[in-house]
Simulated scan of single mutants.
Amino acid sequence: MTRGTRLTAVAAVVLALLCAAAATTAFTMGGDSRPAAARPTAGSPDAGFARDMSVHHQQAVEMSFVVRDRTKNTEVRRLAYDIANTQANQRGMMMGWLNLWSLPVSDASRLPMQWMGMGEEPSADGALMPGMATRAQMADLAKLSGKQAEIRYLQLMTAHHKGGIHMAEGCVQLCKVPAERKFAQGMVASQQSEVQLMSSMLKQRGASATSESHTGS
């Protein structure tokens, strides 16, 4: 990771923390005035979604920082910036909710997506949840540049978004906190729109979301 990428990553962490504080304040003032006994528990879909989607978002932010340094294409860099900014903001909100509910932001006793009735062990190649890139895929992206990096990023992010959409749809069905269900529904709509955009961008580059071959940079 380059020095510029590291600095941007630090900025994103700061943004997430600020958003977490803002989310806590908003719920308190606006807000989640229910007694503690009525708030989501550690094993609830509300808490599970907030925890797992925070992890899912963090990889999208990291992936976007990587491609930003690997291409000069304005369109891809703009998309990567929008995804990184939006998902760092959303991650901060979800961490803020967990803090408000007095719940940990991670829970090693529960498998990823267990709250959705899935709960499979993370794969050996480092993909923690459906749609997430493996360690090898992230390393591959960091080695590419130009058009090849653009294609690989768009492919990985398309799969990432599809996994995120599946999880957000689970929250829409299962979460009990109205604000969180509305948040998840908005996430479904925005990521579906970005999947369509990325499909168009891949076609412009002679590739598809599932193709493995890359044209020259």
Rank of each mutant, 00 (worst) to 15 (best):
residue 116 M to A: 11
residue 132 M to P: 02
residue 86 T to R: 14
residue 44 S to E: 10
residue 47 A to F: 07
residue 139 A to K: 04
residue 117 G to E: 11
residue 174 L to E: 14
residue 152 R to T: 00
residue 133 A to Y: 02
residue 75 E to A: 13
residue 189 A to Q: 11
residue 117 G to I: 11
residue 133 A to T: 05
residue 118 M to F: 08
residue 172 V to I: 08
residue 82 D to F: 07
residue 167 M to E: 12
residue 140 D to H: 04
residue 154 L to W: 02
residue 96 G to N: 10
residue 156 L to N: 13
residue 148 Q to T: 01
residue 54 S to M: 04
residue 146 G to K: 06
residue 76 V to L: 08
residue 178 P to F: 14
residue 76 V to T: 13
residue 166 H to F: 07
residue 114 Q to P: 04
residue 111 L to K: 13
residue 69 D to K: 04
residue 104 P to K: 14
residue 189 A to D: 14
residue 140 D to P: 01
residue 178 P to I: 14
residue 77 R to V: 11
residue 114 Q to G: 13
residue 186 G to W: 08
residue 185 Q to C: 07
residue 88 A to D: 07
residue 118 M to T: 01
residue 157 M to C: 03
residue 168 A to C: 07
residue 110 R to H: 14
residue 157 M to W: 00
residue 65 F to D: 12
residue 74 T to M: 13
residue 139 A to Q: 11
residue 165 I to H: 06
residue 160 H to N: 10
residue 105 V to S: 12
residue 186 G to P: 12
residue 148 Q to W: 00
residue 69 D to N: 05
residue 83 I to H: 03
residue 67 V to W: 00
residue 141 L to G: 00
residue 160 H to V: 06
residue 57 H to R: 11
residue 49 F to E: 09
residue 116 M to F: 02
residue 166 H to I: 04
residue 113 M to Y: 13
residue 149 A to I: 03
residue 132 M to Q: 10
residue 167 M to H: 05
residue 49 F to P: 07
residue 68 R to M: 08
residue 175 C to P: 04
residue 186 G to C: 13
residue 82 D to T: 15
residue 145 S to H: 03
residue 63 M to E: 11
residue 157 M to E: 04
residue 132 M to F: 05
residue 126 G to S: 09
residue 76 V to N: 00
residue 149 A to L: 03
residue 188 V to D: 05
residue 46 D to E: 14
residue 55 V to Q: 10
residue 113 M to L: 15
residue 183 F to M: 10
residue 108 A to D: 15
residue 48 G to M: 02
residue 94 M to H: 08
residue 101 W to L: 10
residue 184 A to D: 03
residue 49 F to G: 03
residue 73 N to D: 14
residue 144 L to H: 01
residue 177 V to E: 15
